[in-house]
Design a binder for these strands. Sequence first.
DNA 1: AATTTAATGTGTAAAATAAACACATTATTC
DNA 2: GAATAATGTGTTTATTTTACACATTAAATT
Lengths: 251, 251
Amino acid sequence: MYNLYSMSTEANRLLKSVKTLSTIQTEVKNINRIALSVDCVIFGFDENKLKVLLIRSDLKKFHDKWSLLGDLVDPREDLNAAAYRILKERTGLNDLYLEQVSTFGEINRHPAGRVVTVAYCSLINIQHHRLKILDNELHWHDVHDITDLAFDHKQIFETSYRQLQRRVQEHPLAFSLLPKKFSLRELQNVYEAILDTKMDRRNFRKKFFSMDFLIDVNEMEQNVPHRPGKLYKFNYEKYEKKKKKWVGIDF
Amino acid sequence: MYNLYSMSTEANRLLKSVKTLSTIQTEVKNINRIALSVDCVIFGFDENKLKVLLIRSDLKKFHDKWSLLGDLVDPREDLNAAAYRILKERTGLNDLYLEQVSTFGEINRHPAGRVVTVAYCSLINIQHHRLKILDNELHWHDVHDITDLAFDHKQIFETSYRQLQRRVQEHPLAFSLLPKKFSLRELQNVYEAILDTKMDRRNFRKKFFSMDFLIDVNEMEQNVPHRPGKLYKFNYEKYEKKKKKWVGIDF
DNA sequence: AATTTAATGTGTAAAATAAACACATTATTC
DNA sequence: GAATAATGTGTTTATTTTACACATTAAATT
């Protein structure tokens, strides 16, 4: 296949001409198959910090390193379905939304052979979800403390984190981390944790009120050790209608 | 594998415990392999129109439909390398930059069996590149005239087109479509074609001059059938230094 | 050669958005 | 009851975006 480079254009063209379905089926079945995996980058928000869920590598060789939640895709399942299955098998989590990030396919990225992996990511409130698989193999790591992960998982993590920071500015992801009724301080904490920055409280309020997606529920925070703030809920219906109008939170 | 769902958490955990490298090697080699392909979405700019390069499907069953430039990935090559190889084999193009878009892995997306495909895209000036494989199997289609493509290629095309429109607003892709020295009208034509919109000439100029990446070369257009415009070149060095300062072209 | 044509080149005003910044208010804690 | 530490509010300035009109230049036409 590689030698086609040196063949004449004409010969090349002929070789590339119409194939029957069965020709391709043969190629697909016998020749060019590759192991495909999914790696899930699950971001968690807890105590105003952004964390990422890692598992001790299940590969003996890397057992002292942390890795993303991954496994091989079964040829009989959709790629997206595989991501949800793998996440559930590894963590018990089954009620979250996974989004594809990117695919990593360097030839030597995995020691067990050729494995191309598709990264997926998600963002949850750690307190709202239970890890049904509880052991010390799973751990939430602060996103600032990610040093060396197994395989190329550091690179996958970084790509995913950048994508998360971008997406949180373009979509109302933040509200899924909060209770239905939340204070503006809580909302700001979410943005500050994910974007890893501090924002001006007054301008933050102004921005969100001007978007006009917050509903004042006429309630106050309870049991907070300071003056309680007003509670709001996010108007999903209004957002759905005006979706196009969402502007990035460019703090 | 699917039945693990119903197994006890404990049993599940044990099954998922540390594996030796050879265990995984067996899985990788024998069980779960899938055909992986690359599909290239090559956008071309010509006569102030945005086009996309399609090839008549090489699958007999779809021979009356157009398709993206794709082929199977060889297990012995990097995924990115496969994209460049496939593009070259199909078109002769070898001097362009490919960027990964997304991966499509629905189980029945390909009639020949399970094929997961990774989409790549690029953007070139059609006049600056020669298709070395010249036959009527390859054709530049106006991006507005894409109706039904083979397989799920319409979906792949649309995802790629959206990504292109986003990227052209965040990176100086446009200049690779122009000669080294270009007029502001030519630059505006590029943005209007890719973003499929009309812009105000005066505000467009203001925006680009304020970015301060254009160098006045003190020359004028030649052989244009109207008042010639001044020529500029893009200051790549300055851009590289101030990369962070590039602001989206939010017309 | 004069006129017409179809572009380029320039500037200003208004509107919208973002950034910086200070003080009164409220509930808790001591 | 005083101190504390948060919330709630508004103004000013700067920046960015949008809308919009007229003079200028060279080619094309007469």
